[in-house]
Write a protein that binds this DNA or RNA. Structure first.
Length: 293
DNA sequence: AAGCGGGGCAACCGCAGCGTG
DNA sequence: CCACGCTGCGGTTGCCCCGCT
């Protein structure tokens, strides 16, 4: 809950009524919740006035949709959700609201923040543009298969243990080996269309006990995509496809892995932190893309 | 312990689309 | 047809928190 309200009342010279800006207080939240519970949502400008909130209609709408709505999911973005976000973004780009429609309980703002803070960060670390072909190819042919790998591992762990992994949802099954998850426009969950693995009945049910604030699952960052041995990759076709597709190598695409090697922050950490690569991963990339180091 | 810097996220801003009078 | 208001979307900003030095 947002208890860090400050005295950020700002007056608009042209307005008689002072409009509040900045973080919402608990009292404001209750007002909005109570009013919507009684009168429903919509017509936000009149709602704001009728509810006695010194906020713009847009602010009320945003607060409701992104935070107060009862079906808003709080907590870690699951592996399946990460995979879906990557896939859907590769199809639709920055169409956050459209992407959010396929992640029940997740808001466009949340997904947008996830993308900007997590995905773009790694693009920056790779010194390539997040919209560049090489970065998209890296996502599709490296990160996403590795993510599927982790989903499979989590599913297998679920099957053999009564203790569920932290980042796993309950009813996901990953079938076969392959490349790409697609979320059809009419689907709420991920399904496979043109590849050899599938996500069936991908559950996006809230784990609900999570505290406020969305956090990416600590076991599911991009660093994980590189953290296991190449030998364990269940998707050899994917990597083969990668090499088939790119006769060149990623270094030639402009990915500055040499500078990564020279960067201590990249290679010194093997503890599963937020770094994209560790030493093992570096050799993995080297092998897969014929880097000349 | 204090200062600093970056990450992460809530909230704001500007714009476009749509409906209505 | 036009003006106006409302809504929704994507981009951006502000600031708290936390780790590092």
């Amino acid at each position: 809950m947002d208890v860090k309200a400050r005295d950020c009342v700002e007056s608009k010279e042209e307005d008689h009524m002072e409009l509040r800006r900045g973080p919402w207080t608990v009292e404001e939240d209750f007002k909005l919740i109570d009013y919507i519970a009684t009168h429903g949502e919509g017509r936000w400008n009149s709602l704001a006035r009728s509810a006695g909130l010194k906020r713009t209609g847009k602010s009320c709408r945003l607060r409701w949709l992104n935070y107060l709505r009862p079906d808003v999911r709080r907590g870690n973005i699951t592996l399946e959700e990460q995979l879906l976000i990557l896939e859907l973004h590769s199809r639709w780009g920055n169409r956050w609201s459209k992407i959010a429609q396929h992640l029940p309980g997740r808001t466009d703002n949340e997904i947008k923040n996830y993308w900007r803070t997590r995905v773009q960060k790694h693009a920056k670390q790779l010194k390539c543009d997040v919209n560049s072909k090489q970065f998209k190819d890296t996502m599709r042919y490296l990160w996403m298969p590795r993510l599927v790998e982790r989903i499979q591992a989590a599913a297998a762990s679920n099957a053999t243990s009564t203790t569920a992994p932290a980042a796993s949802t309950t009813s996901t099954s990953v079938v076969g080996t392959g490349q790409t998850v697609f979320a059809d426009d009419h689907l709420g969950g991920a399904q496979v269309t043109s590849s050899s693995y599938t996500l069936e009945n991908s559950s996006t049910t809230a784990t609900s006990s999570d505290s406020f604030g969305t956090h990416v699952s600590p076991m599911s960052d991009f660093a994980d995509y590189y953290s296991s041995s190449n030998n364990n990759n269940p998707n050899p076709n994917c990597l083969q496809a990668t090499q088939d597709q790119f006769s060149g190598n990623y270094y030639n695409y402009g990915m500055d892995f040499q500078s990564l090697e020279q960067s201590n922050t990249w290679l010194d950490t093997i503890d599963g932190s937020d770094n994209l690569f560790n030493v093992e991963d570096f050799y993995f990339l080297q092998q897969q893309f014929n880097f000349n180091m």
